[in-house]
Write a protein that binds this DNA or RNA. Structure first.
Lengths: 539, 539
DNA sequence: GAGGCTATCTATAAGTC
DNA sequence: TGACTTATAGATAGCCT
């Protein structure tokens, strides 16, 4: 060591060997027995220097003390024969080797943290400067106080976002694992995914719901308009339509008259047999109401409590009531045909709307938005909003099995929410992030599955699947902390979006029920599929 | 240094002084001129030991070399008079002090990073074990490869989320800054925030939209039901109601008859003066349609393109059409009273629904959900879904200035979506995080403002405002990267939610238009307000 | 690039104030 | 809590393979 003004390192000449050695002496306390008094109180001996030489001579020069003497360092000095009782030297130890395990002493943890925090932050800073890198060092003291150290050139969120952009190698590495995991999960499911619930609860995105809301609003206004025609026929400016409405009004009036009579009788009866037939008596009317209301049971049940299945509804014997409704609609056929699809409504007249709907009930996802074509109908056919937005890509797909009426007409124009215009919610913005993240084509097409608390992200282009987070546990956390929103992009099949939850992006994509099944099927069979040859799941 | 088998540290006795010093000799290369050949090729001299002593004698023992000679270390040895040309000693330097600045050499950066990365990660790990703390060390090599080091007990997202939970002190510190910033921004705005757009684009959450959809669906079913009563009076099982409907039908029939006559005349006229009056002739009908549709213009405009303001609508001269509608409604007063609020509808009869609505138009946010009370009304009053959910807390507030009819009735029951049942979107989960984050009451109530690319988060309990992110720039980033979803919780006024975007939570809260204005007003006047004494903004 | 080498530089244990 | 002490444990610069 280079000498300095205050010499504390003292080279010592060993009497027993030919070598010169240095002896560490931090603080040499000379204690004499002049006062015959304990030296131990001065400084506790922590540890003696371990030294292979039992005795040596050393000279030293300290600013506060200077002496020459013999001292054993090999053993506790007191026992050595050469040890002078009048001269006792204590070495206060310097640093000792620390076992890396949790410090049980709370104060020790605090002190150690304070020191090492300083050190590690200095190192982090040096590293960021020396190597010009992005670095984030975030830690919490044992008391919970956070400390953040970051490189000068970047912000924490930038770095974390960057971190989430895994390298292609890392993504590729996870591909196989993920495929296996996904297969396993699909196998594990001994029942089908409850898709209405799945889509209705976890998979709704801002854009989804926004478009849904817009559709509902439009429908509502339509229905209001239609309703207002009844109360306010002045607004109808077509004589034929006025005539039709007039006929309907007359018909309704006639119905009312006969119904009033029935009601009167029923009222008497119900007064007589109130306790016995309280429920039974009103069945015809209750059924009628259900027939009108039943479509609501098909709506996304946002409470997730219960969704009535089509089968349940079909069990209700309300066919008669439906016929009544059809009759009433029939008097409006002229108005039905006011839209673009008069040929459909007239050709569909025979099987009836209800027949088509029955078909639709069988294929839950094949629910299209027909309200635009039937402005006056109060029927159930125009309430299927959720699935309709999901089903946009159907047009691009190779539809192999479809209810005949639909395929024949060939022109179901589901009102398409324009996802591309105007400012979007965060989904769109995140989506643009994802483009960066998944800019290689292999990962451009992704399906997101959530079921039973597990989150799966899957690429679909090659039907290979990959976790797209920074680590497997991230997905678990994502699933635990947030229910991943599923984002709608340009066609449910294509869109990807970055989920920035907790700084660890996951991938989300909106897909249709059919597509989900399709993918699942493909996974199970291990089939490879080329882009553009997707077909619909057969219900 | 303690001696070891291979002694490399050699104590040297200085000839010129009385002290003993150690001289570091890592590798002593003895080069003789036996071959008269350059020594430089053996090892480049990087740096000579800086030593205050110009000459000294040193003995040494190395396993591969042993000699005794004079060597100047103070200067380049070659020039020293005592330097023997036959014996040249090169010291290969050990570590040199490194200036902390960016290493210009790319390879040097790489090498340094590799070494120091190892070191810092080791230190981070040690620290996490020793002190049992959460720690995240994330860095990118100069080549962009990420490295993550974290404590054993925690995941990265947990730590980052925890980090976002700023200490109260830190939050308090930002309070003043933020208040000032918010004031400044509001002052800077020479126009009002376009609140419908603001609410309609950036502030819609999954839950928001879900409840909105649910309400719309309910309304739609209601309207369908109402419509079906017209076409299908069989479903009405009350004789009085049947009678009322019958009267309405008759009235409508009469209207139709007279309208038909009018239409006939108009038709003739329009045929005559087609080119001249093409637009003008249909004004009465177009106005009627607008009257029905106008509420839609109040709906969240998800395209963000244009939102018609109430003033614009009021400019339209459609009072006549409204009166017509009122007349038609009037014949249904019996049905109006079927709900809970018959006293309201009858007392409100004089000023009329439209009068109330005009009031509402003045205070944009005072749009309540009335559809439930007026099942048969096709009017515009039940389309205000967005604001209605926002306005739930109105009941808890001390409403000081309200349209009289509303205050008198005192029991507006906006259908409250039950956010507590069933599976939620990610919003709810995040919301629960926020409870942790803002568990002190001072920050429990928060308003979130976004405008002009700036994001503001504000506590409302004391009308103090604070940035709630980990750093100011986080908010900027949040605003840039994602449009913060605004989350609906239990009452728009109360709810807070953690936004985990980019790992750096921000605070989001859904608030009503009026509340936003209210807060703004309070900020501008610097008024302090106690909890529970909020009043509505006066339009 | 990874790892080894050596001597140094640096961080820090234990203790005191 | 942080500053100070000292000696040492550990990290690492510059070099090599």
């Amino acid at each position: 060591m280079a000498p300095s003004g205050n010499i504390r390192s003292i080279p010592v000449l060993l009497p027993l060997g030919g070598n010169l050695l240095t002896i560490p002496v931090l603080k040499l306390l000379l204690v004499t027995d002049f006062g015959a008094h304990p030296i131990m109180s001065c400084n506790p001996i922590c540890k003696l220097v371990q030294n292979p030489f039992s005795l040596f001579l050393f000279s030293f020069s300290l600013s506060f003390l200077s002496l020459l003497f013999l001292v054993p360092t090999f053993k506790i000095p007191f026992h050595h024969p050469l040890f002078s009782p009048r001269l006792i030297c204590y070495f206060r130890m310097g640093r000792v080797k620390l076992k890396i395990k949790k410090l049980e002493n709370t104060n020790g943890r605090q002190a150690t943290f304070a020191k090492r925090k300083h050190g590690i932050m200095k190192k982090a800073n040096e590293l960021s400067i020396l190597c010009d890198i992005d670095i984030i060092l975030l830690m919490f003291s044992p008391t919970g106080k956070p400390s953040l150290c970051k490189g000068a050139s970047s912000s924490i969120e930038e770095v974390i976002t960057k971190f989430a952009q895994l390298t292609p190698q890392e993504r590729a590495k996870r591909k196989l694992e993920s495929l296996e995991a996904l297969k396993k999960t699909f196998k594990k499911l001994d029942h089908d995914v409850n898709i209405p619930e799945f889509l209705g609860t976890s998979s709704q995105t801002i854009e989804d719901l926004t478009s849904q809301s817009r559709l509902l609003q439009n429908q509502l206004s339509d229905v209001h308009k239609r309703l207002s025609y009844w109360t306010n026929p002045d607004k109808i400016n077509s004589i034929e339509h006025l005539g039709q409405l007039e006929n309907s009004l007359r018909e309704s009036l006639n119905q009312i008259r006969s119904h009033k009579e029935n009601l009167g009788k029923q009222h008497l009866m119900s007064l007589e047999c109130h306790t016995q037939f309280q429920n039974g008596m009103h069945v015809p009317f209750r059924m009628g109401a259900e027939q009108q209301l039943s479509p609501l049971l098909w709506m996304p049940n946002n409470d997730g409590q219960h969704i009535m299945l089509p089968e349940e509804q079909n069990l209700l014997p309300h066919r008669d009531a439906e016929c009544t409704a059809s009759t009433s609609f029939g008097s409006y056929s002229g108005y039905f045909g006011a839209g673009k699809h008069s040929e459909l409504s007239s050709s569909g007249q025979e099987s009836g709307m209800n027949g088509i709907l029955d078909e639709l009930n069988g294929t839950a996802s094949l629910r299209l938005q027909l309200a635009g074509q039937y402005p006056y109908l109060p029927g159930p056919y125009n309430l299927n909003l959720l699935n309709d937005t999901k089903f946009q890509p159907a047009a691009e797909m190779n539809i192999q099995k479809c209810p005949g009426d639909f395929n024949a007409s060939g022109s179901f124009e589901a009102p398409k929410p324009d996802y591309d215009t105007g400012p979007h919610g965060w989904a769109s913005n995140s989506g643009s992030c994802a483009v960066t993240m998944f800019d290689d084509h292999l990962y451009a097409q992704i399906v997101f599955c959530i079921h039973g608390g597990d989150v799966y992200l899957a690429t679909t282009l090659r039907l290979s699947f990959t976790y797209c987070s920074a680590g497997d546990q991230l997905l678990e956390s994502l699933a635990r902390f947030v229910k991943l929103p599923v984002l709608q992009g340009h066609g449910g099949w294509q869109a990807t979006a970055l989920h920035p939850a907790l700084g660890c992006p996951g991938l989300c994509i909106k897909t249709s029920t059919a597509q989900l099944h399709f993918v699942k099927e493909k996974i199970m069979t291990g089939e490879e599929e080329e882009e553009g040859t997707h077909r619909l799941m057969q219900a």
